[in-house]
Design a binder for these strands. Structure first.
Lengths: 210, 210, 210, 210
DNA sequence: TCCTAAGCGAGACGGTACGTCCAGTCTTCGT
DNA sequence: ACGAAGACTGGACGTACCGTCTCGCTTAGGA
């Protein structure tokens, strides 16, 4: 974001790290308090004890700032390898479940989605951020599932990923129903069944699943 | 919206239907032209040839108006009964596909999602509107699939619905990848496979899976 | 105002006198409560228990209504004839003083003045109304003063009238100082002195002035 | 208006003088074009090439702005000292006459009067502004008249001022008759006569009047 | 006795201005 | 050249009021 790898000699007062952190912290706090798109830049700057120009010097728009602020929340995505495809998937699904359950995160989601639609840079940032990390983690697990023979070799990985991530999103954004472990486990089972090795030829895969 | 079936005698000049329709039409036109949240109430009123008060008399906020306007777009949802569960599902999925493909509708989706999150009334309106209609149509088809023996009797209908609707939403909002027939057909197949009657035995498959 | 002396046969439901009176009463009450130009026609109609059309059927504009309402306050102007020009004038001045002192009337004055400037019909109505009545009464007294020999025969009556009425208005509207008997008596004395018969002879009075 | 003499260090971008002046100029121009209370803040801001917030940052309401704008019109009040009280007074009266004759000023007067009645701050501003300046100039002349012996030592100065200013105001606002030199000269003569030293005797002049 | 014109309360209508609030930029200090 | 502070343009927001228009209803006189 504020890379300065141009080798230029960098003169003048250096940027304050405290300011940077204070802005991100203030953004998060305000987003939690009033919601994604009721946050005002004036309020963020005031809360951070910072001038508005200082904010805009670092982020080109409110949305880009908020995206980065949100990125702070979800830092680490697990990379499980228990030997069981189902268990591995459930580890990741439970992590996502926790994100939906956390009021701090969930309140942002829909506003974030709107911001992504409005602006391709934001969309890229989000896709390259925690969304991409989660997706990549799931992909690794699924690939191991294929290697292990739990899933067919011709499994459409992208489809499988969407079958795992889509239902939770849909419930959260649209139907407003519970995003809980029942849903997570149901999605996982559905994917495992849908892309399972054919029983008749390769022997009963259901045994394998466990 | 402003039904008045309370038997009260309804005094004063009645609200103008022309104004009502003109407002909705103007809203739709403007939404298509400038997008969901760049629409201005002033512009809607002006375009409709109507005072702002006339708009606010009917809808408490811009979002509620726009929600209703959007509801106008998608009126009829097909109710197919071809004899094949897969074909029936694909008819509905294709209808949804067309909605995502239609620039008029798709541009609104993310803004609408954000509005739902901001406001419970809007969420209710959307859920009760075209979202509910599509969901109900899918549910009917799935139930016929169960009756026909294509799907197991203990199929988790809500999960199946989310597996059908979620991936398209996810792709559209998050990953930005194509929402096409390949995805639709893949989702349908996955659901049919996941909830298929076990061919070899009649035993409840959940026992087996676990 | 709503004369109907055209000899036409007057068909249909006659106008309600109660409504008429209620409107005037409501106008006065509201003017007293919120001031001349903070009165809203909606409020007047509501307070009078009357539809707005009923108001506009009788008065073409808010200002014309308010003018008539104000006219109700000051009905009778005295017509004193005590034998003393000074005493007669003071009777009238005291009546005007009471008008300025009455919060009900005084609050209206400035708004009324603005309305007169905005609209010639209003100006005419006011001039022909209580302003004209007061002026006429003063004029009669002054004429008797001339007849009696208290004032010179060539007295500029209009100037004298303005010298009597202007200072009170000025204090009330502009300087905000007390409009009291001291001012009234001072004005009367000034006029009597200024237009007094020359005591010594009929000699040129301009000599005297300088 | 927005003095900042409190010794505080005044941080942030200072208010733009160009904007300030542009707003006042635009206000005056619009007032002349459309009249005192048909001026719209939007129009003023647009004409001045300024955001509305910039206007409201300086003046709390339209009226306060317009008052200050009007104050700009009449800057200098003459301070004549010809040796003749009558001539001195006529110099000032003629200046006032010109103000009433100038369409730019006169159109504002009644609206201004209403604004004064509505709001004490406005009244104070006007009284402290050009009204006060004129009044002070008249007062100085009258005092010299007393020193010179043209007027009695016990002359009620305030009364004399009101006798000079009131009639013009009254004609302008109420009777609608000409505010011309005849009126001005008549008022001056009346005041000079009314407060003249008694030539013949030193006896109290009130005896004479009665 | 019915007809028809006008009035009635209620409240919606088109317009217009209000004063507030943000976004993103710019300008003054002082560090 | 950074920092905080805060003013800048521009434009949407939702409210309030004016004077008009339309409902369904009532009240008269004339047929």
């Amino acid at each position: 974001m504020e890379t300065r790898d141009d080798g230029a000699p960098r003169r003048g007062r250096p940027r304050s790290e405290e300011a940077h952190d204070a802005i991100l912290a203030a953004s998060l706090a305000l987003i939690r308090e009033v919601g994604f798109d009721a946050v005002a830049m004036d309020a963020i700057a005031a809360r951070a004890g910072v001038g508005k120009a200082t904010v805009y010097r670092r982020w080109k728009s409110k949305e880009l700032l908020v995206v980065e602020a949100i990125g702070r929340i979800v830092r680490a995505v697990p990379d499980p390898d228990t030997g069981s495809t189902e268990d591995d998937l459930m580890v990741l699904m439970n992590a996502t479940l926790r994100m939906y359950a956390d009021p701090a995160t969930s309140a942002l989601l829909s506003g974030l989605v709107a911001a992504m639609a409005r602006s391709e840079p934001i969309a890229r940032a989000v896709r390259g951020g925690f969304v991409g990390m989660r997706r990549e983690a799931l992909r690794r697990v699924l690939r191991r599932g294929i290697d292990r023979g739990d899933l067919r070799g011709d499994t459409d990985l992208e489809l499988a990923l969407d079958l795992l991530s889509g239902p939770m999103l849909y419930r959260y954004l649209i139907s407003g129903e519970a995003v809980d472990e029942r849903l997570a486990r149901g999605s996982v089972h559905a994917v495992l069944r849908a892309f399972a090795q054919d029983r008749s030829t390769e022997g009963p895969n259901l045994e394998v699943v466990r």
